[in-house]
C-alpha cells in the first residue's frame, strides 16, 4: 500500500474543488526561503515525500516561521533529519492557516460496507475526541448536510471568537469533493487532517492519499 506525498495528495484534493493551503515544493533550503517569500507572511515548512505519512509524530513539521533565517534553518534541520528509508524527499512550504476550529475528514474502504466518508471534530486530536460520523459512498449533498448536523455541535458551527459562522454549504461541498476523490480508481483511503475553518471556510491544511496495493 503506497501513499502520495502531502503535496501530491493536496493537489489531487484541489482538483475536486477542495480548498487547500497555498503550498510550494522546494528542493533546497534556499529554494524554501524563496518559496516562503512568494507565499508571504508566516509559513510552515514540512519534510514531504510519499513515505512520510505521519510527519508530526517524527517532528518533521515546523510551524509559524516568519523570517527568512527561520525558514532557512528549519529547512536545513528537516533535510538533515531525513533517513534513507524516507526515499526521495522535498521541502513543502505552506501558508499558515489560522482558525480556532479544526475538523477532520476522510474516506476509507471498510471490510463490511465498502467505501465510507467521514467527518469529525478535533483535527489532530480527532482520535482522542472520537466525535466522528460516517456515510457510505456515494453520498448526496443531503447526506453531507446530515453529516454536519449529526456532529451535533451547532455552537461550534456558529460565529466563534471573532470568526464568522462556518459556511455549511462550503463544508458540504468539501465533503462532496472528498467523496468524489474517494471514488477514484486505486484510492484506498484519504485523510484531510486538519481541516481548518478560516474565516468560515474549510481549508485542507494536511492531506494524505493512500493508494491500494496494485
Amino acid at each position: 500500500m503506497g501513499a502520495l506525498s502531502e503535496f501530491e495528495s493536496k493537489q489531487l484534493l484541489a482538483t475536486h474543488g477542495i480548498q487547500v493551503s497555498r503550498d510550494k515544493l522546494a528542493h533546497s533550503a534556499e529554494a524554501a526561503v524563496d518559496a516562503a517569500m512568494e507565499i508571504g507572511g508566516s509559513v510552515a515548512v514540512k519534510l514531504c515525500g510519499p513515505a512520510l505519512a505521519h510527519k508530526s509524530e517524527r517532528g518533521l513539521v515546523r510551524l509559524a516561521l516568519d523570517s527568512p533565517d527561520g525558514v532557512r534553518s528549519a529547512a536545513e534541520d528537516l533535510l538533515a533529519l531525513a533517513t534513507a528509508d524516507d526515499g526521495e524527499v522535498a521541502l513543502l512550504v505552506s501558508e499558515m492557516v489560522e482558525g480556532h476550529r479544526e475538523l477532520i475528514a476522510g474516506v476509507v474502504h471498510t471490510e463490511q460496507f465498502g467505501a465510507a466518508l467521514m467527518l469529525g471534530l478535533g483535527g489532530v486530536l480527532a482520535e482522542a475526541v472520537g466525535e466522528v460520523v460516517f456515510r457510505l459512498l456515494p453520498v448526496s449533498e443531503a447526506d453531507c448536510q446530515d453529516m454536519i448536523d449529526d456532529l451535533g455541535v451547532s455552537a461550534l458551527l456558529a460565529p466563534l471568537r471573532g470568526e464568522p459562522a462556518v459556511d455549511q454549504d462550503a463544508l458540504a461541498a468539501t465533503l462532496l469533493g472528498l467523496a468524489q476523490a474517494g471514488c477514484r480508481e486505486g484510492i484506498e483511503a484519504i485523510d484531510i487532517n486538519p481541516l481548518v475553518i478560516r474565516d468560515g471556510q474549510p481549508v485542507a491544511v494536511d492531506g494524505l492519499v493512500v493508494m491500494s496495493s496494485p
Partner: peptide, 25 residues
C-alpha cells in the same frame, strides 16, 4: 477498528460508527 492505522480515518472507522452512519443514511 476496521483498518490498521494506514490513515486516521481508518483508525476511526470502528464497525459501530460505520454501521451507525449507514443506518442514518
Amino acid at each position: 477498528g476496521a483498518q490498521a492505522a494506514a490513515s486516521h480515518t481508518g483508525a476511526l472507522a470502528t464497525d459501530d460508527r460505520v454501521f451507525d452512519g449507514m443506518v442514518r443514511q
